[in-house]
Each structure stands twice: as C-alpha cells, then as structure tokens.
C-alpha cells in the first residue's frame, strides 16, 4: 500500500471504530440488542484474540529448537507469565528475553 492509501485506510478504521463505540449512545431508541447477541458479544475478546494469537505463535521464524520453533517456546513461556502475573510489561519482557536467549543459543 502507498502512504496515501494507508492514510485513507486509517481514516476508515477510525470511522468504523467510532461507529461501533457511539452506536447505542447515539441511537439507543432505534437500536435493539437481542439478549442472545448481548451474551455472544461477551465472548468476542477471548475468541478473537485467540484467533489472532494461535497462528501468529505457530508461524515458523526459521530458528528451531529441535522440532519446535523458538518463537513458539517463547510464546508459551510468555503465556504462562501472562496467566500468573496479568502484567503486560512482564509478559513482553519475558517473551522477548526467552526469544533472544534461545536465538543466541541455537544461532
């Protein structure tokens, strides 16, 4: 994509995101959210985020530790840290450190 194309894309992303956020605040009288849909929306974050994470972690980086890619190992360790600490910084730091350590060891 060229840069002007990226700018238009960003504007469109912003408008769509605003439309989703403002939807009921602006038009509560005209919009109806059926109870089933309301319940379904609570499962958007885990379903969507997992659908992003799983393929990203499984993507081979080219550096393997035996049969598994170093990124998968680093991702699993970071997942454990995320589960125990719920801290973004700790998850990020441990994940990157494990990745660097393994890449250095193998490479």
């Amino acid at each position: 994509m060229s840069r002007p194309e990226i700018w238009w894309l960003i504007v469109a992303m912003a408008l769509l995101t605003f439309a989703l956020r403002a939807s009921f605040l602006l038009a509560a009288e005209r919009l109806r959210l059926p109870p089933l849909l309301r319940r379904a929306l609570t499962y958007v974050p885990p379903a969507v985020l997992a659908a992003i994470v799983a393929p990203a972690l499984a993507q081979p980086s080219g550096t393997a530790l035996g049969p598994v890619d170093v990124r998968l190992v680093a991702g699993l360790v970071a997942g454990l840290v995320a589960w125990r600490t719920r801290a973004i910084v700790a998850t990020f730091a441990v994940g990157m450190l494990v990745l660097w350590g393994l890449t250095w060891l193998v490479g």
Binding site: P45, P46, L49, A50, I52, V53, A56, L57, R71, G75, A78, G79, A82, A87, I88, T91, F92, G95, M96
Partner: peptide, 8 residues
C-alpha cells in the same frame, strides 16, 4: 503476538 497474548 506477545501483546495479544497479554490481552488474551
């Protein structure tokens, strides 16, 4: 992917 993991 690490950030998404921390959100997931």
């Amino acid at each position: 992917p690490l950030m998404f993991l921390a959100l997931l």
